[in-house]
Amino acid sequence: MRLTQEQEELRSALRSLLTQYQAESAWVPLTEQIGAAGLAVPEGYGGAGGGARDVHVLMEELGRSLSPLPYLGSAVLTVGALLASGDKEACERLLPGLAEGTSVGTLAWAEQGSWDQDAIRADAVRAPDGGVLITGTKEHVLDRPGGSVDVLLVAARTAHGVSLFEVAPGATGVRREPVVTMDGTRAQARWVLDGAEGRLVGVDGDGGRYLEHVRDLACAALAAEQVGAAERCLELTVEYARNRVQFGRPIGSFQAVKHRLADAYVLVESARSAALGAAFAADEDPGALPRAAAVAKSVCSEAFSAVAGEMIQLHGGIGITWEHDAHRYFKRAHGAGELFGPPSRHRARLAAQLGMAAR
């Protein structure tokens, strides 16, 4: 599995830009100069017409810098849900702005701390005027740092099953509550809907199918982000081990430290293979994506957590100070590991898929 020369050039351009612009200030140049928000949007809707491998490259670079940009929630979840719905009217109306980056979207999905469809309790009922009113609370909704979103998609239950709705973020009966999380580099919010008017996206009752596909895409993208962050943890730790002198020699020259760094390297490269496998499956073998995404989310979550932990341990006392970046990577590792379900949940998904395939 190899990336193309064009994708490697994309990586170089992204790394240069993310080095030049910090935090939220990178969103405008990222979208205007590189067209990042529209990488996976078909050309007919104003995007670049790329695929999951292009997203993989971008997410790796965002992970390296612990970027707080709303790419995952907007360009992966929201765009992915709209495309999965096949709703041409909604796509024509919403995707161009999302592709340009002039509008930012999010998908309100999780409830009760779970992304499983069984946990969805938000209720969508018919109003006397024929519209749809949604009531429920959505948790762990990826947010936009310092501002509200422009496109809000909500998963709710109708008489036909789980369905997807577009809800105006500032409408009556809609309340956004920012959430303080341990990982301060990824903004989240809680959305409370109390009789909020919703507009059906796609087919009533088919929302569960859309969400399953979106979760696989999201897990593949998040796995790439985890690989980029883990790789940066290892780079910083190797650099420190070369320069930190103890007992008259660099600590990196001690055999025990070499072994731990070598183990961390193996974890990073194994995670990279799993993440690339999911990206290639999304582009070339969609039928294999559910299995590849479950593997990638499980492997990459655990690898990132382990490498981030080693970063703190091998940096010693400075690794637990507020001024050093080690704690930021460790917190991102913990938060990303739980996002879209912990590794154990995805291993259970994988076991179920393998069991069905064996019948």
Rank of each mutant, 00 (worst) to 15 (best):
F330L: 13
R345Y: 09
V55D: 01
V179D: 04
E92P: 02
P70W: 10
E89Y: 03
Y265P: 01
V162G: 04
A279K: 09
Y210I: 05
R260Q: 15
L83P: 01
E92L: 09
R328M: 11
L66C: 04
H334Y: 13
H315D: 00
V201E: 00
T135Q: 02
V203G: 02
T102G: 07
I312Q: 03
P68E: 03
S65P: 01
L152P: 02
L95R: 04
L193Q: 02
T321K: 08
E61N: 07
A303T: 12
G97C: 03
D325Q: 09
L261Y: 11
G49H: 07
A293Q: 03
G97T: 12
D123G: 01
E269R: 15
G207V: 09
V167P: 00
G146W: 06
R260H: 14
L142I: 08
L236A: 15
A90L: 06
Y265N: 09
V203R: 14
A336V: 05
V79H: 00
E269Q: 15
E338L: 15
A159D: 14
G205L: 01
D129K: 08
P169R: 10
R260S: 15
E139W: 04
S344Q: 11
P70D: 01
F165E: 00
A348N: 07
L95P: 01
L261F: 08
A84G: 03
G287L: 14
R53W: 02
D116L: 12
P169F: 10
V149M: 07
G355D: 04
G252Y: 12
L39T: 08
D194F: 06
V238D: 02
W191L: 15
L94M: 06
A306N: 04
L142D: 01
L339V: 05
T321M: 11
A36Y: 07
E111R: 09
A171H: 07
A294G: 01
G50I: 09
L3W: 08
G277F: 05
F254Q: 13
I120G: 00
S305D: 12
G161K: 07
Q22K: 13
L3F: 12
R144P: 00
L69C: 02
G277N: 00
E323D: 13
A119T: 05
K331N: 10
G195M: 12
G202D: 03
V214G: 02
T135G: 01
G47D: 06
T102K: 14
T19E: 11
T135R: 10
H334T: 13
F280V: 04
Q313H: 11
L314M: 05
